[in-house]
Simulated scan of single mutants.
Amino acid sequence: MDEDLANKIPQLLQYNPVHKKIPVLVHNCKAVAESLVIVEYIDETWKQNPILPQDPYERAIMRFRAKFGDDKVLPSIWGVFIKQGKEQEELLGQAMETLKFLEEQLEGKVLFGGEKIGLVDIALG
């Protein structure tokens, strides 16, 4: 269902009482909150279309890159748009640095998942 972020409906507060925000996935009457957790839930629930690699090390690398996106890339980019002056300049430098790191991680590939879309591609998309 669509959510009006200014007027949160009771179901959102019921399904995500901790953060009180979207996204929330409701599957089999059970709620799963937070983007990366939802994507991993989807990967584990619908195994015929894996989002994460099977190799444990590669899975860990993909989780790291997705978390890096959430913790470093998105806040720095968001800050560039909402801050001004010197603070904006500093965040622009951070954003460029984090994006350069991600670009290096692509290693000449179009997608982080290689031939098909994966966790990092979804998380950063």
Rank of each mutant, 00 (worst) to 15 (best):
M1A: 14
D4G: 01
L5E: 03
L5W: 11
N7L: 10
N7A: 13
K8V: 12
I9K: 15
Q11L: 15
L12G: 01
Q14H: 10
Q14P: 02
Y15D: 13
Y15Q: 15
H19Y: 13
H19Q: 04
K20C: 06
L25V: 12
L25R: 15
C29I: 03
C29P: 00
K30P: 08
A31G: 00
V32Q: 08
V32K: 05
A33L: 00
E34W: 10
S35H: 03
S35V: 02
L36R: 13
L36T: 12
V37P: 07
V37G: 13
V39W: 03
E40I: 04
E44Q: 15
T45Y: 08
W46G: 10
W46A: 07
N49T: 13
N49G: 00
I51G: 06
L52Y: 01
P53M: 02
P53A: 04
P53H: 02
D55F: 04
D55Y: 05
D55K: 09
P56C: 06
Y57N: 05
E58L: 13
R59P: 08
R59D: 02
M62D: 14
R63T: 03
R63K: 04
R63E: 01
F64S: 10
F64L: 12
A66E: 07
G69A: 06
G69W: 01
D71L: 07
V73C: 04
V73E: 01
P75R: 10
S76D: 09
I77G: 09
W78V: 14
W78F: 09
W78M: 05
G79K: 01
G79T: 06
I82S: 14
G85S: 02
E87A: 13
Q88K: 14
E89S: 06
L91N: 14
L91R: 02
L92D: 10
G93N: 14
A95P: 02
M96D: 11
M96H: 13
E97Q: 10
E97W: 08
T98M: 00
L99G: 04
K100E: 14
K100N: 08
F101T: 05
F101E: 09
F101L: 14
L102E: 07
E103Q: 15
E103H: 10
Q105D: 10
Q105Y: 05
Q105V: 06
G108K: 08
K109E: 05
L111N: 00
G113A: 08
G113K: 09
E115H: 03
L119A: 03
L119V: 07
V120M: 05
V120I: 07
D121R: 04
D121F: 03
I122W: 02
I122C: 02
A123C: 03
G125V: 07
G125P: 02
G125S: 11
